[in-house]
Design a protein around this nucleic acid. Sequence first.
DNA 1: TTGAAAGCGGTACCAG
DNA 2: CTGGTACCGCTTTCAA
Lengths: 332, 332
Amino acid sequence: MSLEEVARRAGVSTATVSRVMNNKTVVKSATRNRVLRVVTELNYHPNLHARTLAGGRSRTLGMILSNMENPFFLDIYRAVEALAHTRGYEVVVANTDYRREQLLASLRMMIGRRVAGLAVVVSEMDPSFLNEVNESKTPAVFYDAGAACQSVHNIRINYRLGIERMVDYLHDLGHHKFAFIGHHSALGPMSEREVTFVETVKRFDTEWRTAADEDGLEGGRQAARSLLQSGFQPTAIICVNDFMAVGVLRELRDRGLRVPQDVSVTGFDNIKLSEFCYPALTTVHIPRERIGRHVFAMLVPEEAKPKPPAQEMIIDPEFVLRASTGPAPARE
Amino acid sequence: MSLEEVARRAGVSTATVSRVMNNKTVVKSATRNRVLRVVTELNYHPNLHARTLAGGRSRTLGMILSNMENPFFLDIYRAVEALAHTRGYEVVVANTDYRREQLLASLRMMIGRRVAGLAVVVSEMDPSFLNEVNESKTPAVFYDAGAACQSVHNIRINYRLGIERMVDYLHDLGHHKFAFIGHHSALGPMSEREVTFVETVKRFDTEWRTAADEDGLEGGRQAARSLLQSGFQPTAIICVNDFMAVGVLRELRDRGLRVPQDVSVTGFDNIKLSEFCYPALTTVHIPRERIGRHVFAMLVPEEAKPKPPAQEMIIDPEFVLRASTGPAPARE
DNA sequence: TTGAAAGCGGTACCAG
DNA sequence: CTGGTACCGCTTTCAA
């Protein structure tokens, strides 16, 4: 099951087998067929490790995500993967569960794999990690993870804009008691949304509170539960993302609170599910497909031109009005 | 950034550096520290390809899934990954989107990677593929993919039991107009569920019909749409899985049909979402966690004993009653 | 404890 | 067109 084995059986040199396996230039079709026959007979599969080691290049992209369960991350992955396949690249993913230690481990693994490009889409980034990636010379893109630097590209979302719109919109509807539900990750995008929420909400005459739990359906429900058990009764709940918002909806339903009559709920991201839950979520759209395209483009430069300079891309989210928000209930 | 480079700078041989990198037996701690310092200075990351090539072993498990978007598959993956990490293994996943060509490509990729074990959790399996895996000598587990053979383990679900229970239950509630909503994959578990549905439903005096679309929220909605547009008005809709069922719920809601008053809906798998959608789905539980454990155990034998013989595991699903099913509406 | 050297399975350049 | 062969970067005896 090695190149040499095939070569021997086919009565040719390893070089020739290699040429056949790679559809290389000129190989007499008689020889080619002979080799191919042996290849199938032996069920030969070239060793990819040997191949990349010898060849130098990699044809594999690495991608590190905070939470693959959250459709938001998965969508970006899928977008990148689809593009990658059309260009003959593989994508290997790693999940961090928002844990820095795991992120570090994944980063090292990717560097060790000598991936052709690395996309890091996590909220728990750390400057020192960024540095390690930089020094490894691995082409990389970071999604929401600090300033662009060297060969490292960067993509970020204008969270401020998104959150402000939500709050303004709800305030206009007469809401005065707000809550923000987030997940535990204390860094980057997470806190940026929360911070903006707090700042924005303070501009008005409002009461507000925040709660957090794990990112996910169950986390959303738990956060809502602890929020409401504390006795605070918000009329508007702004969630850090759609995924958690769906969990919040469930908890409210269980408590007999109607959405949006009794309380309005908003999400963030506009994942497919936000349209299929009940009631459908008012949210803010983050273009995963577009992010995926951008990520890929920065990692795998067009055949033609050499490679674009490190650049930052900022995305402005769009407001999506659905059924989970409405006027504040009459004050008691 | 190669072993040799480190060796030179540290004034030792590559063998020694290798020993240090692998926490190998005896290395004078002075030398060890010197090497480690150079390693950090140079930001050295061992080349994993060279490592596996030279070492022979792999410490990486491969996993091929039909649709990572469907939480059912993702849950199994997560279970396997969690276990793998505790034992120092990596897991690389590949997605097929239910496409056989993609499955074949992924299979080859995994074999080429010389993974230490391969889990194939797809509905589109083909005997010839199975054969290719077998000949490659890669330890593998198949989830629902034909008879166990050679070093290939096999896990299957007693779909028949699950579907029969759903139909019986609904029939007992007075339903006589059934519909089955599946996805396009024509193979294995898919059709097994559908076939069982048809067989079971025929035992009673019922009208029935089937519809199919892509696996997913949108697919479920589309399938329901085409089903209802055809003029057929089922009082009970049995879905191939929870994921599609959630899409079905959405379509029914849009059409002003109440669940379960006007029509009952059932899912399959018992994914987390089935509990968070509205109304919560009556479904059948498939233990992904357990499947994951089994998969891992079969791929990575305990330290102690050598390796268990090829075996088949059959899982009996459990019925989960929730809010999406109820008595058939009074006949008009 | 440490070094030297033989691979692991391919790729790619240089001759023929 | 095809063969010979020097690596790619690391692991692993075998000796020292």
